[in-house]
Amino acid sequence: MIPSTLEYTKASSIDEAIAAVQAGARPLAGGQSLMPMMRLRLAAPGAVVDLGGIAELVGVCEDGDEIAVGAMTTHRAVAADPLIGEHCRVVAQAASGVGSLVIRGRGTIGGSLAHADPHGDLPAAILAVGGAVIARGPGGERRIEIGDLITSYLTTSLADDEIITQVRLPKGNGRSAYAKFHRRAIDWSIVGVGVAIGADGVRAAATGVADRPVRLAGFEAAINGGASAEEAARAAGEGIDPTADLDGSTEYKRHLAGVLAAQAHQAAQG
């Protein structure tokens, strides 16, 4: 539980952070995922650059049809934000259930997405509303849709010298909810499902069922085709092939995806 020797710097601007990242430093957001990995020596960056001193990376504001969330906004702030609560309730709910109070007070929305844990709650919630991130590198900014960001276990399409600066959440997803299942009061989700009822129908996205957050196409097709939530739940496992592990079999996780999709769908209507 002792990290290997490393250089630590704290950036005061995005440009400074990008310069450090270009020089090989690993960005450190809230430290709730990277630090444990370093302590287990699963990650051993030679240098980290702390993004915690960059004021412009924190905060939530309206920007046209979207809500712009600074990447360093904590889960606690996201969970309590009235704009997100009104327009993207599923994201606020997912944020409110991450880890413990202490973790939510330090962990950030951008860090959670960049870390890309296959059991993370925020990626699935943001996928359910069709969000995106703004990434900035030495060559400037680009927008990456959430479905294109996370590509596999702990892997993203970010370039080595890019950092996430903003998360973009589309408005109009007030009727949305997140449901998850885990063993103890505070645990990683075994499976979590975000559901959003938007103008173009129901979208459902799950965590814990693949190497990245995925849309539950079977559930969506059934429910948008007029099926009951119970029928749609049975279709939720179509097209997903979760890995069996100590938390349960493939079949159990497929079943859970359906149970949680139906729960979230029910809650989203309220």
């Binding site: 287990l40 063993r183 103890r184 009061a185 505070i186 645990d187 990683w188 100590l246």
Partner: peptide, 15 residues
């Protein structure tokens, strides 16, 4: 397969 407290589940007060 259970080398950390993420895999080895010790109940907390909330449980």
């Amino acid at each position: 397969l259970t080398p950390t407290l993420v895999e080895y589940l010790v109940p907390s007060a909330a449980d």
